[in-house]
Design a protein around this nucleic acid. Structure first.
Length: 637
DNA sequence: GTTTAGGATTCG
């Protein structure tokens, strides 16, 4: 690192910027457009940064020299800008390059070496800068979500925008507005890549290498402004392609329909669409090289003889509409979005045959999910009693609150406080007419445990109060004073609350036992919901997904009903309503079954076991179907 | 010493 000047630079926090000034700033990259040729004379890069003040600043960076713009490779990188002019645009401060603009870029990963990327020959870099980068890395680790768009080919979904880190194997002009890039990242796409029709002689690259890698390579068409960039790329270089778009295309050839995955880099620079060449020293490139090396070694074994010849014959001769070789069609059709967990011995039965037969029976089927109900996740989660098989809605928080408030109006009986089972404390609310809340702390073998493992019984608490207590105490049981003993408040509310999990009991099937029965559990190491339920005479309800699937295998259409606590989706129905990530997983699975914006012929096949059963509806007999012993295939989620 | 672009997905 060189230093020619000992001038002290000061850095302005992003919440203190004033229009018309020229400043130095540090920030974490929240968004960026890699440098591209503007419609004027310069290259342009748009970069949005943020700092510990939680203020964002969008910067317009121009330079006639591509290298003079910051070399940002991903969201989370850290930048230092010198001599950035602040102007006001739409009433907000905006940064723009001013004369003498210079930048440094650092990896944003905590613990990575603090190495500035810059085109400046001489730059000022001190211990204070080092500390600045590290402080921003720490701040970013909790304030800037890591890029979710960096995806490897094995993980791409149809209809997705993502950033691909890959090596360029070949390139070819297709026509004036589009250009073909053949790339790989060492992994295999879930659907075979389309093959864009080109003349063999226009392809630049090692054809035998590309042939040997077979379907480890994908074809990407880039359009319009990206064509110039693509032309200038060197075969063998490492690229990151931003906001690459996938589309699943169905192609019918003779009797068989097949699927292929198209890759498009559309024109324009929206969402940072573009291509950058990554230097060999980049840490992601180092990982990519390892992946490529091991995939390359494994490649010859992957090409089994039967498919090889088909593939070779059809290579580079397929049309741009995306037809694929027979072997890929078969591979694709073998891919199943769900698999059996049992009954593998069953032969597959077409739906038309099932629809003609009497119930009850079991079948193995292969079909596609034409549609499903309900569409909303919240409508599909219910409470199920395994004893009486009744289903009920999950109570709404407002209703819980009403019942709890009603319970809170009853007067606690002091005779029931402080027993050998629990110590009791009474709280009086000041502003609510002296409402009394009693907390009974259940002892373990006569001793009060730590709150994190402690069960408390609460009398007179509101939902809000219980929520607060549930973050501190292991378990909560809402109770009321009865004539002899404390009693469960009401089975319309959870009989047990553990953190955010609410455990309900069946009103029909439970025969409540006295609270003192918890005595039988005080020697246990934890409060297990099923044990608590048993001690209190409660039949616990299960959270389940209840859905109707309309299945279609081309021979017939059948409605099958699915009731699942966690085995089918591999997502616990009891937690899905509390967890955004689980909800996203659920959406992903349903989008995988029925990819939005596509037709049923491109949907994946599902293998299921179903059972038929008779339902009497008044005078009418009806056959219904239920899915069981089936689960979402791991490799497709 | 101007202009470019001013984040906000798609013709293919």
């Amino acid at each position: 690192m060189s230093s020619v000047s000992v001038a002290n630079y000061t850095y302005t926090p992003l919440n203190q910027l004033k229009g018309g000034t020229v400043v130095n700033v540090y920030g974490v990259v929240k968004f960026f457009k890699p440098p591209y040729l503007s419609k004027g004379t310069d290259y342009c890069s748009v970069v949005t940064i943020a700092d510990q003040t939680n203020v964002k600043l969008t910067c317009l960076l121009f330079s006639g020299n591509y290298e003079a713009l910051p070399q940002i490779y991903k969201v989370g990188d850290i930048v230092r800008f010198h001599r950035l002019k602040i102007q006001v645009y739409k009433n907000e401060p905006q940064g723009i390059t001013s004369s003498g603009f210079a930048s440094l870029t650092f990896e944003g990963t905590l613990g990575a070496p603090v190495l500035p990327r810059t085109s400046s020959k001489y730059f000022h870099f001190t211990d204070a800068d080092h500390k600045m980068v590290e402080a921003l890395r720490i701040w970013a680790s909790t304030h800037i979500p890591p890029s979710s768009t960096l995806v490897q080919l094995y993980d791409v979904q149809p209809m997705q925008y993502f950033d691909l880190t890959c090596q360029l194997l070949g390139k070819a002009q297709v026509d004036g507005a589009s250009f073909l890039l053949k790339v790989w990242d060492g992994t295999r796409t879930p659907f075979p890549s389309w093959r864009v029709l080109i003349e063999n002689e226009v392809l630049e690259g090692d054809l035998s290498h590309i042939r040997r890698l077979q379907n480890l390579t994908v074809d990407i068409l880039v359009y319009d402004n990206h064509v110039q960039v693509a032309k200038s790329l060197k075969v063998g270089s490492f690229l990151r392609i931003y906001s690459l778009h996938t589309k699943l295309q169905s192609v019918s050839s003779e009797s068989q329909a097949s699927l292929s995955l198209e890759f498009h880099l559309h024109g324009g620079t929206s969402y940072g669409r573009g291509i950058t060449v990554l230097p060999e020293s980049n840490s992601d490139v180092e990982q990519l090289k390892k992946d490529l090396q091991s995939a390359d070694l494994a490649a010859p074994q992957h090409s089994d003889g039967i498919c090889q010849s088909d593939h070779e014959d059809s290579f580079l001769t397929l049309s741009s509409s995306g037809s694929v070789s027979l072997c890929e069609v078969e591979r694709c059709q073998q891919l199943s979005a769900t698999i059996l967990t049992d009954h593998h011995y069953l032969e597959k039965t077409p739906l038309c045959a099932i629809l003609k037969q009497k119930a009850p029976q079991q079948y193995r089927i292969r079909a596609k999910l034409r549609s499903y109900k309900p569409k909303g996740l919240f409508q599909s989660v219910k409470l199920y009693c395994p004893k009486c098989h009744s289903l009920q809605e999950v109570p709404h928080e407002n209703d819980l609150d009403i019942i709890l408030r009603d319970g809170a109006s009853k007067t606690p009986d002091t005779k029931l406080q402080n027993t050998p089972l629990y110590d009791s404390e009474v709280w009086s609310t000041e502003d609510q007419g002296g409402r009394k809340v009693v907390t009974h702390f259940v002892k373990r073998n006569g001793v009060l445990p730590l709150s994190s493992v402690c069960l408390i019984l609460i009398e007179g608490g509101t939902l809000g109060e219980i929520c607060k207590l549930s973050s501190e105490f292991h378990s909560i049981i809402p109770v009321k004073s009865g004539p002899e003993d404390l009693e469960l408040l009401d089975l319309s509310v959870p009989f047990l609350i553990q953190g955010r999990l609410y455990h309900y009991g069946c009103k029909q099937c439970s025969s409540l036992k006295p609270i003192q029965n918890l005595n039988s559990l005080v020697g246990e190491t934890s409060w297990i919901p099923s044990s608590v339920a048993e001690a209190l005479g409660i039949v616990p309800l299960q959270h389940v997904f209840v859905m109707t699937f309309t299945l279609d295998d081309g021979t017939g259409v059948l409605e099958a009903y699915l009731m699942d606590s966690d085995r089918f989706f591999q997502i616990p129905a009891s937690e899905v309503l509390l967890d955004d990530n689980l909800q996203r997983s659920m959406d992903l699975i349903m989008d995988m079954f029925c990819p939005p914006g596509t037709k049923i012929d491109v949907y994946p096949w599902m293998e299921c076991v179903i059972r038929s059963y008779n339902v009497t509806n008044g005078a009418e007999q009806q056959i219904c179907y239920q899915i069981f012993d089936t689960t979402v295939a791991e490799d497709v989620t």
